[in-house]
Write a protein that binds this DNA or RNA. Structure first.
Lengths: 193, 193
DNA sequence: ACAATAACCTGAGAT
DNA sequence: GATCTCAGGTTATTG
């Protein structure tokens, strides 16, 4: 029952599940799209939290069984301005949903995020990125709208079928690599901005 | 980073800052006012906690540097009925504030404390007292309203001017005496009622 | 299950 | 304007 289950990347990788550390420097030259979400009024309102659809959360961030621990995730600004955002990512058992809490409202303010806009999450290796676009605007990212939609649907199927199997595992995967769970506060492990 | 920093009274007193152990028994014949607080709706609501203004907390209860530890404090009923209340006194790092938690709601219920009422903390040596009065009522205690006001103002000046100097000290003062910090749970040191 | 406790977070106002 | 404080929220844990 670790309250803050910090995730430290280990080298005990098994099967890597993406593009990483191939031809480029350390890792993370290739930017791959993870998922989009059209934000709701609640996501940009006074609740100060973004609900991350469960299938996306479990597919891309963390697998249940990690103790419901929280994580401080750092997302670089997708526009490449060097700016970064740290969000607290956790699971709310009461509502059975994954959320970004601390830090989220800052992003909403800064980027003037409004209901109907789309937030887009992507990564390059272990580097995470966040970006957004106005409602009604074209995808504009690395993926066409149709493809994104297809990908989302695929995610849905995949996660719903595997969720039960995954639940209860002790192993933790974060961003496609094996991680170990510790009790140390995350602030010491992931630098805040 | 001790979570529960217990305070044990030692005899290494330096300059004592009040009236104590003069002509009466052991100590604590003279009742001196510490501070008042007009309680907010939150203080008497379902949050079950009393926010203790930082300058009062640091001036009268504990000095930062003790590790943010919690303490179980025993307050005798100011009306002298032999009744006593034990409150958990601690620091909430997230909101940077001192609070009374466990036990507080019992006092609120028993004394029918309502928003706008005033809680008054005083002491006689090491014996702590708590009392309250209805909103709009005169001071009514052992001290005239004017005197209480003056005392309060003095407290204000003292604490605001010395706060910066006090912050970061290693020494700990509790109720006017030097104390040493331990990691033992306080429940073993201060008896509950 | 529920209530009490503990901890965390943030906006607004004061300094 | 940046920092500090705190009222009022929230979730989480415990019994």
């Amino acid at each position: 029952m670790a309250l803050t289950a910090a995730a430290r990347v280990s080298n005990s990788t098994g099967g890597e599940g993406g593009v990483s550390g191939s031809g480029n420097g350390v890792c993370g030259g290739v930017r791959e799209h993870m998922f989009d979400k059209v934000v709701t009024p609640s996501d940009v309102g006074k609740l100060n939290r973004l609900v991350v659809p469960k299938h996306f959360a479990e597919a891309h961030f963390v697998v249940p069984g990690s103790g419901g621990g929280a994580a401080l995730l750092r997302f670089e600004d997708g526009r490449g301005k060097g700016k970064a955002w740290c969000f607290r990512f956790s699971y709310w058992g009461s509502s059975q949903s994954y959320v970004m809490t601390k830090g989220w409202s800052g992003f909403v303010r800064d980027r003037r995020l409004a209901a109907g806009d789309t937030v887009s999450f992507s990564r390059a290796g272990h580097r995470l990125f966040i970006d957004c676009r106005r409602r009604g605007s074209a995808s504009g990212g690395s993926m066409a709208a149709a493809a994104a939609e297809a990908s989302r649907a695929l995610d849905d199927v995949e996660t719903t079928t595997t969720r039960r199997l995954m639940a209860g595992r002790r192993r933790v995967r974060l961003f496609g690599v094996d991680v170990e769970v510790t009790d140390e506060p995350l602030d010491l492990q992931l630098g805040l901005n």
